[in-house]
Amino acid sequence: MKIMASGIAALALSAVALPIAIVAAPREGGEGLRPASSFATIGDPTQRSVAIFEEMGKVLQSPRCVNCHPRTDRPLQGDDQRPHDPPVTRGPDGHGAAGLECSTCHGPANVAFANGEGSVPGNPQWHLAPIEMAWEGKSLAQICEQIKDPARNGGKSLDQIVEHNAHDSLVGWGWNPGAGRTPAPGTQAEFGALTRAWVDSGAHCPAG
């Protein structure tokens, strides 16, 4: 039902519907990932591998991933990657400080705020990447070397990294981040396929 204010003539109507600007409004969506198969045209395996990783980098360097791979003890937050507020800390195991664990606010799933202005993200595994896996402020080349280094990737083999990228539920959150956040580009399946293709092509890293 539409209710009009009574007794107002010749209104200068504003188009403003709500006094609400979504904080960290999503960027224009639609940014996708090139399929792994589209890199087959690159003949040189090293160059192909590097190109595939650079495509993966769109995901790796998105706020959805970097925000929880911080270089300090404090995660980032939002598409503008501001320091997380409240000022939480990683704690002994990446699950937050005693008394203010990640699970104090982050539940098993995203929860929309009742005010209609965004959401608190959630996942059963919600936690920070260990400090040795920090990506914040690093180049794609540095991130690449780090991902391949078992000392800095949680002791994972390349096949385990493929599995992680393709199927890990917390990684998958990046494509379902809740209201107020831009999803990572593409889909987790596409990201997994790219990772597979990267490993199969020799897991080469960009220069620099």
Binding site: A5, I8, L11, A12, L13, S14, A15, V16, A17, L18, I20, A114, N115, G116, E117
Partner: peptide, 12 residues
């Protein structure tokens, strides 16, 4: 939630 779902035209 009802407040958040209102669609209002304002006279400013």
């Amino acid at each position: 939630r009802g407040r958040a779902a209102l669609k209002v035209e304002w006279d400013l």
